[in-house]
Nucleic acid binder design. Structure first.
Lengths: 217, 217
DNA sequence: ATAAATTTTTAGATAAGTCTAAATTAAAAA
DNA sequence: TTTTTAATTTAGACTTATCTAAAAATTTAT
């Protein structure tokens, strides 16, 4: 049985591994978990001793199969609960993260699986992130970052990478919601901003926004 | 913000106060929480300092208004989650306690209230225990302990006091479920057991069972 | 290749919640 | 009322997860 803290480290390590495709280093992890590097070192030692990851001094950490399984179970719970909150309890997509952070640590396989069934085995959560099934498998939908598109290209917005409520509120305000059809109207080289069109309305978005939006072409 | 441990103490103190109508003493509380008396003393001091209860050395503790409010909020969450698990996720009444013990600590008023609405503002949980509303109020249905009935008296079983899965499994096995019509057929003075009739079938139950069953006459 | 800068680890401290064992207080019995 | 028993509290220790400050290793720059 793992503590909430241990699960949080494993989840974050998993997420960083996916993003950077390399061993996770101490400082970055510390920043993400919002703690100090020395605390991270302690925890990595502990998780290595529990046989959840490979840790080499000064070289960083990497989940082993067991650790990855834990990570996927936590991610599964997090995304199922987010889906539940939005679909059944009238939450909006910018209100669910913090609560799911708590709910993801509830220990009961039956609960997780019954919730999955109750929600009709959803494939993605309210942010378009894939939900691992009971065996940890998930379909990777082929998505393309909005930054990769050229003028006149278009696609359907299906996944957002930054789940912060600040960012999600910005998107909602600008009508950029999952399922929206987005067309690239213009690109500015000097600041990498672009002009997009949604529902016949055009407006500019900055590089920081662009890199967090993923489309299905 | 209270820790899970603090909430558990407050909940248990509240429950013991209701049951015994007197200040809660250290040893009994220690037994219920499954910890040592010395740990209880420490926690009572801490909760008193946080102004959640009145604590007098060697005299026991008693929740104040603030503490009672916390207790009712936790009880509300516990019972709403139990109801959710049984009504929406196919759990039986003997499977929900442990999971609700975890879920009752999730912090989000909106979540609690949306869950309440989603369940249609239930008045009682799967064990017949009343669910406090958003203000901490609950209707006290007038119930009578089965031990108070005489031969040929009858009533509808609406509430069970012992929520342990062992006991609930026993009841299920013997067809004693919430809503069952129970008639007292015979009483044995020497061991206080009685013979009851449910659905035309008669059988004997012991004093330990009897004292945990409450009926509406 | 060496020095400087950065990253990471170690050492020692702290807070929460628990424990054991000893001391104290209250309650019950003689 | 004094003694005995039981309940409660105190003192000191342990674990988990955290922190700061200092030391060590690695990386980058000269």
């Amino acid at each position: 049985m793992l503590t909430n803290s241990e699960e949080n480290y494993i989840k974050e390590i998993y997420s960083l591994e996916q993003k950077h495709q390399t061993d996770v280093n101490t400082n970055l992890l510390a920043e993400k978990i919002e703690t100090k590097a020395s605390s991270v070192t302690d925890m990595l030692k502990k998780l290595a001793k529990k046989d959840l990851l490979i840790y080499q001094k000064y070289k960083g950490a990497k989940l082993n199969t067991k650790g990855e399984k834990v990570a996927l179970a936590v991610v599964r719970k997090h995304r199922l609960w987010e889906t539940f909150l939005v679909e059944k309890l009238n939450f909006s997509w910018d209100e669910v993260h913090e609560i799911a952070e708590q709910l993801e640590h509830i220990q009961s396989e039956k609960l997780t699986n019954e919730l999955d069934a109750f929600l009709n085995f959803p494939k993605v959560d309210p942010h378009g992130d894939p939900i691992p099934d009971v065996n940890g498998n998930f379909a990777t939908i082929k998505t393309v970052c909005l930054s990769k598109l050229n003028i006149d290209d278009e696609g359907v917005f299906v996944e957002v990478k930054d789940d912060s409520d600040k960012f999600l509120k910005y998107l909602t305000k600008n009508n950029i919601t999952i399922g929206a059809k987005i067309k690239v109207v213009d690109k500015e080289d000097f600041d990498n901003s672009i002009k997009i069109e949604i529902d016949k309305k055009q407006f500019n978005i900055s590089e920081n926004v662009i890199k967090n939006l993923y489309l299905k072409i």
